Simulated scan of single mutants.
Amino acid sequence: MRLFLKTKDFYVSGEQFELHRDEDLDMLVTKPEPQNLAPYYESENYISHTDSKTSFTDKLYQLVKAKNLKNKVQIIEDQIDKQKNLLDLGAGTGDFLITAKKSGFKVIGVEPNNKARTRAGEKGMHLLSSMEDVSGKKFQAITLWHVLEHLPNLEEQVKALVNLLEEDGVLIIAVPNFKSFDAKYYKSHWAAFDVPRHLWHFSKTSIKKLFAPHKLEVVKIKPMWFDAFYVSLLSEKYKGNKMYLISAFFVGLWSNLTAIFTKEQSSLIYILKKKK
């Protein structure tokens, strides 16, 4: 693997990291990988674990999150036609599962962060702490909303996911896309690199190649249009731009406009099913 670029943890530690390119899989790998990742999530501002609504950025995130929940459920319903048993990995504070449950799904969620599990429990959604707690079970739908990039031991995690999926089930994965315009524009300041919490940085090719040996194929790819704006907003703040709102809007807009032609949006949702 060769060095792609150098960046740092803008969010918690300020530590320097490198991204190396795996040419075979067409993906980037964060180096070095910390032996203990838990401290890098210990922040009152880590929004997916706290439901924070203190800053303008937090409020914007929560507003769009609320609008996206039903859309995520609809994506699953469009893909399955029998019993609705759903596993969500990296369930955060449980809002997606709560929405899915209201739509008739039988739900199980896994979230390793204790703070996030506690917050979900306060909403009435009990979450498990480890994938080991669901081993041996099978699910019609498995979702990872911006989670796969966080998981260590990637190949082992992929095998575990496949083993949990029913033969006619659907696996839905949302991840940032390092080939988007906003990624190329911001380079080391691109917020979706989010090192070292993001260990892997995917392209369309890498997702296809990772799951192909397990006879899972990508049947559809859907864009996440808002991510270009949100990621650009964070990236501008990392750059120290006091006019970050205006700059982020135009970069996010241009990223989405170019993606109409390139199909390389800031984040992508991959829908995978087993080959017949």
Rank of each mutant, 00 (worst) to 15 (best):
L148T: 08
I173A: 04
H146K: 05
A160W: 00
E167L: 02
D168N: 14
E156V: 06
V170D: 12
D168K: 14
L151E: 11
L171Y: 03
E149I: 04
I173L: 02
D168I: 00
H150R: 07
V175M: 06
W145Q: 12
V170G: 05
Q157A: 14
E149D: 14
L171G: 10
E156H: 07
A174F: 01
L165A: 06
L151R: 06
A160R: 11
L151G: 07
E166V: 01
I172W: 01
H146V: 09
E166L: 01
D168M: 01
V158C: 13
E167R: 11
L161T: 09
V170R: 01
N153C: 04
L148G: 12
A160K: 15
L171F: 08
L164W: 02
L154I: 14
V158K: 09
I173E: 06
E166G: 03
E167Y: 00
L171N: 08
H146Q: 13
H150I: 00
I173C: 11
A174N: 09
D168V: 01
N163M: 08
E149G: 07
H146E: 11
E166W: 01
I172D: 08
W145N: 14
L151I: 15
L151H: 07
G169R: 02
I173R: 06
E167G: 12
V170L: 00
E156S: 14
V170N: 06
G169K: 01
A160T: 15
V147C: 15
H150Y: 04
K159L: 15
W145G: 11
L164Q: 06
V170Y: 00
E167V: 02
L165W: 02
L161Q: 06
H150W: 03
L164H: 10
K159G: 13
E156R: 13
N163K: 15
A160M: 07
W145C: 03
G169C: 05
W145P: 10
E155S: 15
E166K: 08
V147P: 07
L171Q: 05
I172A: 04
E155L: 13
L164I: 11
H146D: 14
E155G: 07
P152W: 00
D168A: 03
A160Q: 15
N153V: 02
Q157M: 13
I172S: 10
D168F: 00
P152R: 06
E166Y: 00
E155T: 10
H150Q: 04
L171E: 06
L154C: 13
L151W: 01
N163H: 13
W145S: 12
L164D: 09
A174K: 05
L154E: 12
A174W: 02
V175R: 03
